[in-house]
Amino acid sequence: MAKPQESDPLPPTETLEFKWGKMRGKGGKKKDTQFYESFTLDGEDYSLYDTVYLQNGTQSEPHIAKIIKIWETPTRIKLRKIKVQWFFRPREISKFLKGIQIYYNELFFACGDGTGLTNINPLESIAGKCNVVCISKDARNPQPSDETLQKADFVFYRYFDVGQRKIVEEVDDKSVGMEVTNLFNKIA
Rank of each mutant, 00 (worst) to 15 (best):
A2T: 14
P9M: 13
T13R: 07
T15A: 10
T15S: 10
L16V: 15
K22G: 13
M23T: 11
G27M: 09
G28S: 08
D32N: 14
Q34L: 15
F39S: 14
T40Q: 15
T40K: 15
T51A: 12
L54H: 05
L54D: 06
N56C: 02
G57P: 11
S60M: 09
E61T: 01
A65G: 04
I68N: 12
K69T: 12
K69C: 11
I70S: 05
I70P: 07
W71V: 10
R80W: 04
R91I: 02
E92M: 00
E92V: 06
S94A: 00
F96C: 00
K98C: 01
G99Q: 02
F108A: 03
C111I: 11
T115P: 05
G116L: 02
G116F: 06
N119F: 05
P122I: 03
L123K: 11
S125V: 01
K129M: 15
V133S: 04
C134E: 13
R140A: 14
Q143D: 03
P144L: 01
L149N: 00
Q150T: 08
R158S: 00
Y159H: 13
I167D: 00
I167S: 02
E170V: 14
E170T: 14
D173L: 07
K174S: 10
K174T: 12
T181M: 11
L183M: 08
A188G: 07
